[in-house]
Design a protein around this nucleic acid. Structure first.
Length: 224
DNA sequence: GCGACAG
DNA sequence: ATCTTGTCGC
């Protein structure tokens, strides 16, 4: 059995641990954003985690982790490539906080995945906190085009099941793709994403984590 | 078999 | 993912 087959089998096992929602009032005061940057001509990777606080989304904590890519990019197995650097950065940022973030926003999909276990699900069951996936491009399923106004959305359907939403975060911009990761629901996910997009198409968490991971990678290249 | 395919 | 600043268009 190859690495890919092992990884797929693990996804089918871990999928059982995904929880649909966290009961109780969904107060969100801090949100984490996570991203990974890759070097063009080496296996250097940099994971970054930023923590933003409502309502202004200022960065209250952040951490990065530089390492070597240990798994290739294979559609459907992205989490096996990105989780190592993300978890390293996650541990670092947790040590700088007194309270864990209320929500983690991932760059990629959650259950909108061939085996219903994308990056957001894998990260969620690993840290056991609410996670959502916010992807810039579609991966699986079909959906109609949502209206051109901010907040409009359509369902992403995979094999007859709703697995996410194509959400317009700003008037007239291309939609983003939202799906549940762990311990949350699609309505809450879309609401949080809209709050995180007061000005741009992508959530402030995504923008901030993306920028931090790139600068961390650039610094690592100089040192190496 | 062929093409598509998150980041 | 990555190559990359200013610039064309609404």
């Amino acid at each position: 059995m190859g690495e890919a087959e092992d990884a797929e089998a693990l996804q089918d096992e871990l999928r059982r641990l995904v929880q649909a929602d966290t009961p109780g009032p969904d107060l969100v005061t801090t949100v984490a954003g996570l991203d990974v940057a890759y070097d063009t001509d080496s296996d250097l990777v940099a994971g970054a985690v930023v923590v933003l606080a409502a309502p202004g989304w200022e960065v209250i904590a952040s951490a990065t982790a530089v390492g070597r890519a240990s798994f290739p990019y294979i559609p459907g197995l992205l989490s096996f490539r990105e989780l190592p650097p993300l978890l390293d950065a996650w541990e670092a940022v947790l040590s700088r906080l007194t309270t864990p973030p209320d929500l983690l926003v991932c760059d990629g999909h959650g259950i909108a995945h061939p085996r219903r276990f994308g990056l957001a699900c894998h990260l969620g069951v690993t840290v056991d906190l609410p996670t959502i996936g916010v992807a810039k491009t579609q991966f699986v399923g079909e959906h109609s085009s949502p209206g051109q106004r901010r907040g409009e959305r359509t369902a992403i359907i995979l094999e007859g099941e709703p697995v996410g939403a194509a959400l317009r975060t700003r008037d007239g911009v291309r939609e983003v793709y939202i799906s549940v990761g762990h311990r949350t629901n699609l309505d809450s996910a879309c609401r949080w994403v809209l709050e995180l997009c007061p000005r741009y198409r992508l959530p402030e968490t995504t923008r901030s984590a993306d920028q931090l991971s790139r600068t961390a990678l650039a610094e690592a290249r100089l040192a190496a």
